[in-house]
Amino acid sequence: MSVKAKRFPQRLNIRSGTIDMTHGSGGRAMAQLIEELFVTHFDNDLLRQANDQAAFDVPAGRLVMSTDGHVISPLFFPGGDIGSLSVHGTLNDVAMAGARPLYLSSGFILEEGFPLADLERIVISMAAAAKRAGVPVVTGDTKVVERGKGDGVFITTTGVGIVPKGVNISGDRARPGDAILVSGSIGDHGVAIMSSRENLTFETTIESDSAALHKLVASMVEAVPDIHCLRDPTRGGLATTLNELALQSGVGMQLTEDAIPVRPAVSAACELLGLDPLYIANEGKLICICAPADAQRLLAVMRADPLGAEAAIIGEVIEDAHGFVRMQTGFGGSRVVDWLTGEQLPRIC
């Protein structure tokens, strides 16, 4: 440590310092930022080697790779922040192939003037999320853009993982008769974000459901290797994700509204803003489609995991040339559940 101290005579002023262009210039300031912030917190052998890449052995099997850019406002929200979100989001994308995630990379785009204290908070949260998940961040990149050309911080993460043998999960494998399961209540993330946006102020105890689902997926895949489809209903919500799967598989779907778990606070916030929980984003839920014979076993496995405690069977895959997702409403009628159109904007009428 004493050698490092000499390289950077003054430690980063995290408490009141801000990002400036030198932090992305490739010079000493950047090296210091990487060392005192990123390496310190992400702390692992591969990162400490200080190469521009990470080299590692991979187990035999099919390799999965996924990347996700994270932009969110506000950066800190009830139940999480952009740091933990950027870890969970990519781990979930890898896990939805039934894969066990191995490593992550991260790319930061920082805006000039961004407070170092906020950056440290984000990095600590990100490191904690990676540690909880057991998947290290082994390589990364940092760029700085001029003030006004970013929104504080953007984080892109990439993950790699290995699919166990005999697992073939894909969005085009839904077949008529298959059961549709969801791992828990929908809309929590979107409502938590909206509640913290300045112009929509309402108070609620709802927190984002942001979580890494790969351990839940691992136990599901172990119980039923032949899961047909897995997908996390993020932007566009449950409705849009089911429509994607229906289109990909060339099938229709029949849902039962009363079976879909929605928290009272999410329902209430949606009533207030004229929104539909089916279209609100989730960051810690998955949709699973499987053969009807496997549904109960999967449901039991999911409910045994804290992240799937409120799992439910919400409908079935049906034949439909139009690929409609339909729903029996709680009121006793039926309706189409269409793709999300444009952006979910609060309505007055």
């Binding site: 029996q328 409403t329 709680g330 009121f331 006793g332 009628g333 039926s334 309706r335």
Partner: peptide, 8 residues
Amino acid sequence: FRYGVQDL
């Protein structure tokens, strides 16, 4: 439309 009233 949302509640499927026509069905009833």
